[in-house]
Structures are given as structure tokens and as C-alpha cells.
Amino acid sequence: MEKRIKNSFLRGTADGIPIALGYLSVSFGFGIMAAGAGLSVFEAFMISLTNLTSAGQAQGVAVIAGGGTLLEMAAVQLIINIRYALMAISLSQKLDKSFTLPHRMMAAYGITDEIFAVCSTKEKKLRPSYMYGVTLISTLGWVGGTFFGAAAGEILPASVTAALGIVLYGMFMAIIIPPCRKEKSILMVVVTAAGLSILCKYLLSAVSSGFAVILCALAASLVGAALFPRKEEED
């Protein structure tokens, strides 16, 4: 029994290596962004260790840099990260019975887009040790990259750190553009959200960037759900 658990942990660790490598480079960009916003290496490191998410952290740093309220911070995280609740619900349907409540409470920390993708596409029931393996190696990549990025932000020439400021946004585009090609409903939602965001930026500049993202995303998603409701089998 003990041996089996150890093996699934190692299997999870192996499956997590590509995630860790991807995280390493993306979080390097986050570290630079955080340092550029005035955060210390330790603060950037702690944000990555306690949040383990890209979009929420990037917008969180924007809220800190803009001197936003704690309520704004909470609302921003809620809206940006609400997708994890869906992934958690989806994953909860395929848990092994060894996944007791304490395991669920611990493993929930590791629900990210990529870890969810790896864990949910497993054919067998999901075991805690497997998910811990994937999560551990991925987290090492995420916090390691953040540390080096934030530290390098103070060492690298300004021309390099400036260019690396675009890394996270480049990744976001790589996530949303391919589905836009496939489904015109997603394209419509993406274009609507972008258009509203531009309007907020230049016409409603009093609205802080965190709330602007929330308003635009809620509005665009409501329009999408009203015009293009998704049937069960499309998921």
C-alpha cells in the first residue's frame, strides 16, 4: 500500500515536469513585473507561493501598485479565479475514495488550469498522492521562476526587463486566440470584453483597472451566455 502511494506520487511528479518548465518561464515574467511595480523579491515570492495562479497575481500586483482597497483586491481575485471553482467541481466528480476531506482541503491548493488539465484527463480515479506530485513540482517551477525574475529585475539591463514585461500577456493571448478560431461565440465574447476594456481605459478612467476588468468580463460573459447558450454536449 505504502509503495503504491509512493509510485503515484512519483508518476504525478513526472507528469508535472512540463508544467513546471512552462511555469518557470512565465513566473519569471511575473517576478519582473512584480519587482517593476515596487515589490521586494520576498513579497513576489510569497505571492506566488500562496496564490499559484498567473492572471490573478498579475492583476493583484496592479491593484497593489494602484493602491486599491482590500475589497477591490478580494473582488478582483474572486472574478478572475472563479474558473477554479468550476474546475474544482469538475475534478470532485472523479476523486478516488482515498480522497478524504483533509486531502481535499490540502490538494485544492493545486487547482490551476494546467494541473486541472493533467489531473482531469487521467483515465483512472484521481488519488491524492498523484495530485500532490503534480502540484509539488509545478509549484517549485512557479516560485523558483518568480524568485529569479524578481531578483533579475534588479540585475538585468532595463531594455531586457522592459521587454519581458510582455511575457504574461503573450501567454494570455496564446490561451484565448486558438479557441477564438474554433468557436465564434468565444471570439464574440473576447472582442466584446476587449472593446469594453478599451472604453473603460479611455472614457471611464476613474474606474480602477481591477474593477474595470471585472465589469468588462461580467458584461461580455452575460452577453455571450444570452446570445450563445452552450448545450450540454459542447463541454
Binding site: I82, I186, T192, A193, S197, V213, A220
Partner: peptide
Amino acid sequence: SFLYYIPYAVLSAMTI
């Protein structure tokens, strides 16, 4: 449907 579109809308509004 609403929940399905949220991540795309969030990332788009954050990026542009």
C-alpha cells in the same frame, strides 16, 4: 454558459 465564457472574457479584458 456564463461560467464557461468568464475566463476568456477576463483574459481578454486584462490583456487589451
